[in-house]
């Protein structure tokens, strides 16, 4: 019933993209450029260049289409499936368009930018196929909001049960409560864990202190340790959730700006070709 973008409509767009690539390769092998070496200036070079440029514009249109809610009969999934496969086909189309002539110039810049956009997109596809399941498994039925709520609850319980446990422990728990951070900068989100987690540090120091205690205090400490451990586990779970969610988004922050850079380079490339060649 559910069908991922990869297999969408029995690989319809994979078939289309493959066909496009194959046709390009066959023509490339078959054509006999006048000047000897294949390049962008032959009839095939112009042809592939035009197809590539139009494809790039159409692929960019996906950003608009994605936000045109409720319009059009075609499912967005079909668009994405086509976006992925036709985007990948650009590797063949554009590479053949270059005729393997690279240099330190705006033309090669446009090509490199395009390959980077495709690479970031490929990572995006990987992320979309891999992380959703990991996220569901990590969540174990909770949402991030619920995790935060449970962390706050655990935190309160920790503070309450540390009340009678002496100054040192009290301070450790309070510090854990004040200094524990979730999320934050991009790197922290992507890291998925916090080696300097204040709660974890507090737990370790409390565990050390627990070794020296006995009797009623020891049993109160055991309860605190249990609560702190629960909080640490919840924090780990929440950080993992934030990490996966960041991984599913981060590539777009590369993919989209690079696309605009690509467009700029592409315009420069086209203008250069037509006016100064």
């Amino acid at each position: 019933m559910h069908e991922s973008v990869v297999v969408y409509n029995r690989f319809r767009f994979l078939k289309a993209a493959t066909l496009l690539g194959l046709v390009a390769i066959v023509l490339y092998a078959w054509h006999d450029p006048a000047g000897g070496l294949p390049n962008g200036g032959t009839w095939l070079g112009y042809g592939l260049g035009t197809i590539g440029a139009l494809l790039i514009l159409w692929l960019m249109w996906f950003g608009v289409r994605k936000r045109s809610y409720g319009e059009g009969h075609v499912k967005l999934e079909a668009w994405l499936s086509a976006h992925i496969y036709l985007g990948l086909s650009l590797i063949v189309v554009a590479t053949l368009h270059t005729g393997f002539q690279f240099g330190w110039n705006v033309h090669t810049l446009a090509y490199v930018l395009m390959m980077l956009v495709i690479a970031s997109g490929a990572f995006g596809l990987y992320a979309y196929l891999r992380y959703p399941r990991l996220m569901t498994e990590n969540r174990r039925g909770l949402t991030l909001t619920m995790m935060m709520q449970q962390i706050a609850d655990a935190d309160r319980d920790c503070r309450e049960s540390s009340m009678q446990l002496g100054e040192e422990i009290n301070r450790a728990v309070l510090q854990a409560s004040q200094d524990t951070r979730l999320g934050g900068s991009m790197w922290r989100q992507l890291a998925g864990r916090d080696p300097n987690c204040a709660t974890l540090a507090a737990l370790r120091s409390i565990e050390r202190l627990a070794e020296k205690t006995s009797g009623a205090e020891a049993s109160a400490l055991r309860r605190l340790v249990t609560l702190m451990t629960k909080k640490v586990d919840l924090l780990r779970q929440a950080r993992r959730d934030i990490q996966l969610s960041a991984l599913m988004q981060i590539w777009l922050y590369v993919h989209v700006p690079l696309t605009f850079a690509l467009i700029a380079a592409l315009v420069a490339h086209v203008i250069a070709v037509f006016f100064y060649w």
Partner: peptide, 19 residues
């Protein structure tokens, strides 16, 4: 709305279906 449920049509990955 022409085309039916917007939630399903707007799902980019085919995760949402109405059945």
């Amino acid at each position: 709305v022409e085309g039916g449920a917007a939630c399903v049509r707007a799902c980019p990955t085919g995760a949402a279906i109405r059945v």
